[in-house]
Amino acid sequence: MTDTVDATAADRALKARHRAMWGLGDYPAVARDLIPELGRVLVAAAGVRRGERVLDVAAGTGNAAVPAALTGAEVVASDLTPELFPAGREFAARAGAELAWEEADAEALPYADASFDVVLSCVGVMFAPHHQQAADELVRVCRPGGRIGLVSWTPEGFVGEMFRTMKPYAPPPPPGAQPPPLWGDEQHVRGLFGDRVTDVVARRRTVTTSGWETPEAWRDYWKSVYGPTIATYRNIADDPERVAALDRDLAALAARYDRGAGGTVLDWEYLVLTARRA
């Protein structure tokens, strides 16, 4: 009994840290200014249609939920961090979309079995620490014959490299946690879903980001807006040498990927994966 209580308390503390992390910086600006196309790509890949009941898991500010709602679907945008919802509601209002916003943990969704026609997640569920639990929930709430659609950063792409770069400076992951970019590995996701899904289609694509004069300017922007990066810097804030080292490492990463002329341009690879619930 004590072990169960301790595990439950540890999980609550972990989720509280995750919720706080995604409330840092300005993730709504990242979603709005850098990756707005990802949600539209996912909605098209999943074939969302008018009248379908759709759940967007770890929806953030509604990058996928809002375009899904614009098809005429009945959409629920769920996220562990409701602090993101005001920006999501503003985004929806500007687009003329109507949908529900509900606080929910991707590893313990508060919805009945088989209650959605389509279950989506756009660079969201990949950040749930326990991949199998999250995958089980995606499958559970999707009706038989329904679709699951995911967009995830790949391990080999820029964002996957960025997480590897930050790892030595970040707090150690909790027991059982897996790296988020594994969701961008088709075989990993197939293993999570197993024979509970069919008709798996996976394609790698890139989104081009720009707007910085130099790799160092990208780094300074990123360490001010992106929750995981801010949390990593806070972890080493009392060690100026490590802060300087991470500064160098992130700028070097951006310089390696930079294909701009007169400004920094970065291509970020992601995986679009769709499947049908068996």
Rank of each mutant, 00 (worst) to 15 (best):
S78C: 05
A20S: 06
I35F: 12
H18N: 15
G51Y: 12
A29W: 15
L99N: 05
R49W: 06
A104P: 13
L55P: 00
T61M: 10
G62W: 01
N63M: 03
L55E: 01
A93K: 00
R53A: 14
L24R: 09
L84I: 02
Y27D: 09
T81I: 04
T71A: 14
A73D: 11
G23N: 10
G72I: 01
V30H: 10
F91I: 00
A93T: 06
V48D: 14
L99E: 04
A20Q: 14
G96C: 07
R89A: 08
V30K: 08
L24C: 05
R40Q: 15
A87C: 05
Y27R: 10
P28D: 03
E103I: 09
P36I: 05
L99C: 02
E103V: 11
D105L: 13
A97T: 03
V41P: 00
R32G: 08
R50I: 14
A104D: 12
R94F: 00
P82F: 09
W101G: 10
R32N: 10
A45K: 04
G72V: 01
E98F: 14
E103L: 13
I35K: 03
E98R: 06
D105T: 06
G23L: 09
P28K: 03
D56Q: 05
G60S: 08
A59S: 15
L34F: 04
G39S: 12
A73E: 03
T71K: 11
R89Y: 01
S78D: 00
V41W: 12
E83V: 13
L55S: 10
W22V: 12
R89L: 05
E90A: 09
Y27F: 11
W101Y: 15
G60W: 12
G72M: 01
A65D: 05
T81V: 03
V57A: 11
D79P: 01
G39V: 15
V48I: 15
T61G: 07
L70K: 08
A93F: 04
P28A: 10
A100D: 14
G23W: 13
G23M: 11
G88S: 13
L99G: 06
F85K: 13
D56V: 01
V57H: 08
V75G: 00
L70T: 04
E83G: 15
V66Y: 03
A87P: 01
F85Y: 12
E90T: 14
Y27S: 09
F91L: 12
P36E: 07
E90N: 03
A68G: 00
A87V: 00
R49T: 08
G25H: 02
A73N: 02
R40N: 07
V75W: 00
L55D: 04
L70R: 07
R19N: 02
E83I: 09
A92D: 05
P28M: 03
D26V: 06
V41N: 10
A20V: 09
A73W: 02
A95E: 12
A92V: 14
R53F: 13
G23K: 06
W22M: 11
A97L: 08
A45L: 02
A58V: 06
G60L: 02
A20F: 10
T71I: 04
E102Q: 12
A100E: 07
P82V: 07
W101P: 15
A77S: 10
P67T: 00
A45R: 05
A65Y: 08
A69T: 04
L34I: 09
N63F: 06
L70W: 03
G72T: 00
E74C: 09
D105W: 15
A93P: 07
G88R: 15
A20R: 10
V54T: 12
L24H: 14
